[in-house]
Design a protein around this nucleic acid. Structure first.
Length: 110
DNA sequence: ACTATGACAAGGT
DNA sequence: GACCTTGCCATAG
């Protein structure tokens, strides 16, 4: 049996499944929202093994670059949702999921 | 127990 | 910006 409790796996899967089309999250964000702060690598492993049926393409690195072996497919699927890459990198400022605006001030405009 | 690897992240150079 | 080092944690050998 896996060392990672299925509870955590299901929470991670739930968070990924809830990412709206046209938006993205970083691995670390998914981990945090799943109650696993600091477990970004765990999210990567879960998606690798059990993420085939999820919108895994909406999860990428904190700097907006996808993992190299996935880049082609991932950027292609994101492009189909209107998430455009600039030289192989997604602008997190623009596309990162914002569940609510925590603070006032300038936010990225389209 | 120890080292190596990996769909990662943050900080320094 | 790119690159390197450290920290991270589950798996594999």
């Amino acid at each position: 049996m896996p060392a990672v409790d299925l509870e955590s796996v299901e929470r991670v899967r739930g968070v990924v499944a809830a990412i709206p089309a046209g938006c993205v999250l970083a691995y670390g964000d998914v981990a945090a929202h799943a109650g696993l702060p600091g477990r970004a690598r765990l999210v990567g492993r879960i998606l690798a093994e059990d993420g085939h049926d999820l919108p895994w393409h909406r999860v990428l690195r904190a700097d907006g670059t996808p993992a190299p072996h996935l880049a082609a497919e991932q950027l292609s699927q994101l492009r189909a949702e209107g998430v455009l890459a600039d030289n192989g990198r997604i602008s997190m400022r623009r596309y990162r999921v914002r569940y609510h605006w925590a603070s006032p001030g300038p936010r990225p405009s389209p």
